[in-house]
Computed example of a mutant assay.
Amino acid sequence: MGILSINMDDPMDVDALDAFLKIAEYRSLSAVAKLYGVPKSTLSLRLKQLEGELNTSLFLREGRSLVLTEAGQTLRTHAADILGRCEAARMAVAETLDDASGMLRIGATGEFGTAFYSQMLFAFRRRYPKVQLDLSFFSPHTLYLPERQEMMDAIISWDDGNAGQGGAEQLWTDRFCLYASRDYLARMGTPATPAELEEHQAVMFRQPAGPQLWLLQRDAETLSILPRSDLFANEYWTVKYFAVASEGIAYLPSFFTQIECERGDLVRVLPGWESAQQRVTLRVMRPSALSRRMGAFIDFCRDYFSPGYVFNGPRYYVETIFNPTNTTQTGEQR
């Protein structure tokens, strides 16, 4: 067992501590190098220098993962505190400036990263170019763990069940509906009632506990449907791709299919039926000590999700370009 020995005449490098914390989180030099764009050799050098200053090993290798030693666990607590104080100092200086600036760390559930969060944060960067962004996606099961919350300035979640805790603010709502391609409906017929869904093929989103149920309601009637399917994916872009590719009916939020419906690549199925409202919420981790950039982000989110806001930026969608298996269309899905 290594002894944590610190040489006070040779203060630890903040960059080395930051690298150490990132390696401790992801348990891999390669993963950190890929995620943060830092050469693996640089991370390795910083870690070796830190271990040399402390005269102890901070990690042990178990298979392909790095595991903290007892000394590493001790340093992790102190390193997080040191970097937190450094960030607080930077925030205090930034508060004296006229413009919002500095690093903003946002955690989010990752269901609709490119179509939802990336688009929103692109618009935020256009308005506040001096603010740096670090966006991390987590599953709803890990997003609200205490160690995650300590890393984040704010969390944006898509109806994850925890949003009501800690004073989260509702930004927006949407509903899931059923969608299919015109080619699929021409081939298989258009269901007129929920009961007729039994005759159709579904493209299913798979949650950790199993396939996502289709929860539909119309007036006072509520249904829970588990349709027949041989296509499952735990990523909504894949589900939408197969729906556009005429492989079945999919259960998707309306914002996520807007462009495909406008282009005619998808159409609503059973338009009178839809899910209950799904919430998008913003939870600020330290509301009693808002930085200028965090205040700017809160105001921007409220503006972005207001009815009159118009987004002017790149949008991402599944486009039918060339499909050699379909003689009535031109296009393979991308």
Rank of each mutant, 00 (worst) to 15 (best):
Y184E: 06
A92G: 07
Q132N: 11
A209E: 14
E247P: 03
P287K: 07
P39N: 02
V280L: 07
L83G: 03
A168N: 02
Y251R: 07
S139A: 08
Q278A: 01
A245Q: 08
L45Q: 14
M152Y: 06
Q329F: 11
A123C: 04
G166E: 00
C86V: 15
W214F: 15
D13F: 09
R334E: 08
Q258D: 13
D10C: 11
V14T: 14
G313Q: 03
L121H: 04
Y117S: 01
R125Y: 04
A276D: 15
T114D: 09
N323M: 08
F255S: 00
Q201S: 07
L66R: 13
F59A: 04
P140C: 03
E262M: 02
D81Y: 10
D160H: 03
S136H: 12
Q258G: 09
E70W: 08
Q278D: 01
L252P: 04
A202S: 03
G164D: 08
S288I: 10
T173Q: 13
R76G: 11
L143I: 01
K40T: 14
A115T: 14
Q258V: 10
G210W: 03
G72S: 04
I259L: 07
E150A: 15
F116G: 01
D98A: 11
N55W: 08
A33R: 11
F116N: 03
E198I: 12
S306V: 07
Y184T: 04
D303F: 06
L185E: 02
Q207K: 12
D159N: 03
P253H: 06
W158N: 13
L68I: 03
R302H: 02
Q212G: 06
R126F: 03
Q73I: 13
V318L: 13
T327E: 13
R334K: 14
R187V: 07
K48Q: 15
L45D: 13
F205L: 04
F116C: 00
V203T: 09
T320N: 08
L215V: 11
G84M: 05
F305V: 01
F297K: 03
G84D: 01
V32N: 08
A168L: 00
H78I: 10
G113S: 10
L29A: 13
G2W: 15
P307N: 00
T281F: 11
Y117N: 00
D81C: 09
G2V: 14
Y316A: 08
D99E: 08
T330R: 14
M204D: 03
E221Y: 07
T56P: 09
A163F: 05
L29I: 15
L54S: 05
L216G: 04
D174C: 11
L66M: 11
E274L: 05
L290P: 03
R125P: 00
R61P: 12
L185P: 05
S246G: 06
V32H: 07
S65H: 14
L66K: 10
R286W: 04
V310Q: 11
R206N: 09
G331S: 08
R175I: 08
F311N: 03
